[in-house]
Nucleic acid binder design. Sequence first.
DNA 1: GTTCGACCATGACATCTGTCATCTCGAACG
DNA 2: CGTTCGAGATGACAGATGTCATGGTCGAAC
Lengths: 200, 200
Amino acid sequence: MIRVVLAEDQKMVLSAFASLLELEEDIDVVATATNGEEALAAVRKHRPDVLLTDIEMPGLSGLDVARKLADEGPAVRVVIFTTFARPGYLRQALDARVAGYILKDAPITDLVAALRRVHRGERVVAPELAVAAWEGTDPLTARERDVLRLVGEGLPNSEISQRLHLSEGTVRNYLSSVILKLDARNRTEAFAIARDKGYL
Amino acid sequence: MIRVVLAEDQKMVLSAFASLLELEEDIDVVATATNGEEALAAVRKHRPDVLLTDIEMPGLSGLDVARKLADEGPAVRVVIFTTFARPGYLRQALDARVAGYILKDAPITDLVAALRRVHRGERVVAPELAVAAWEGTDPLTARERDVLRLVGEGLPNSEISQRLHLSEGTVRNYLSSVILKLDARNRTEAFAIARDKGYL
DNA sequence: GTTCGACCATGACATCTGTCATCTCGAACG
DNA sequence: CGTTCGAGATGACAGATGTCATGGTCGAAC
């Protein structure tokens, strides 16, 4: 019997997957959660074999939860299932020592198969991403990401400099470097590229 | 018996919902689709009572499909089910004369209940959106939206003007107007605001 | 028949953005 | 011990962006 905790912020999707997994005789959904904090609490309480979690959730993301569980030891295996085929996300997931990364776009049979393989001790990565993970390595430094995130909120350099306690010139320098690295024409395009690749 | 065509681009989610709906005795999922074109074809072939569709799908969006079906008469009732609580989306949906607009964040019981009510001839709108629809009316003109969409792709004014066959000054004027209307500080923030409200 | 709004344009102007050269500092590496 | 790298900074400059005034056409509405 594979004991699973399931985390997914959209309630309809959560219960749909829960019902579906319960139909499998060798899978038991012992708890569900609609955000990262709940997921973490449920894992600590129920000690399941596998945490199956979405990435984008309010508060703690699935990647945040995976990182925290990795710090606590390898007892619970984490499988990420997400909409996003972003190399940056996969990279973060692998850094957090997840056992699986599968896409919601794949057929459901893949989901159940992945759970069984992970339970046997294997690691499972969506094939369309295995290659992309290495070619799309994040070239940005931590500070460059900080600046770029605020750019995405539409802040002008003056306000970004205040928020990060930097001089405005430094902000311009970082952004200039980001634009160069991402081969963008301006801040807006740089942000769009970084977002699509999952660097943020 | 309520005959339903179900459209949703993420295959796992699609089959999860399909299985779940099939468990209801009065609901029959006669066909599924993973994009707008397939959905349209399935509706024309099977003539279901209800088309239950996501919004964001590759190619034709759920809103596009709703608009096309509205042109063909009221035979098929459309229910939008989506992640996005954006007033602009609801507005477009109502303009396309949809019969329902529900959120994936609501409990599943709402989904089945909505299908039954729509089948009885009622209209169903997610309560958290019914109010927001009127306060968040899109203030932008068609041309302003065109410009703003290209801004979102990171294009500079010069290239936007070429794409839309406008002078660069005119692009600046439209954008200035957009920034004023949306109370933004620059193009990037204007785009972020419009995206979040579903104006694009 | 006028008024209004969407659409398109020009020119002037101020400010913001992006690039580049150059500098300091501290940590990491061989 | 020198080199490299990230973080942080300055100043100068060119080009992109945003604002404003102004003016034109056209179609719908009153």
